[in-house]
Amino acid sequence: MAFAYRRVDFLLSVDASGEVREGDCLLLETGRRPAEGELALVKREKVEVLCRWNGRNGDEVLGVVIGVKRKL
């Protein structure tokens, strides 16, 4: 299992519809394909998007979101 962190910017926080906020740090599990419905960070036409995975063709999976780190 491999992990990566990704800081949430304004655009990603809009994608997540309130599940994460700008400034949060996503804990990503990389190296596997997400299951249907899992929250994943994907690259869609050169743009990184946070979405519930639905197996859409053409998306490059950057990681499955397993948690979030928030500065208090």
């Binding site: 804990l27 599990e29 929250l39 499955v64 979101v65 397993i66 948690g67 979030v68 780190k69 928030r70 500065k71 208090l72």
Partner: peptide
């Protein structure tokens, strides 16, 4: 001074 939330199932 941070908070880590681990999603259920992971």
């Amino acid at each position: 001074a941070n908070l880590v939330d681990v999603y259920s199932g992971y």
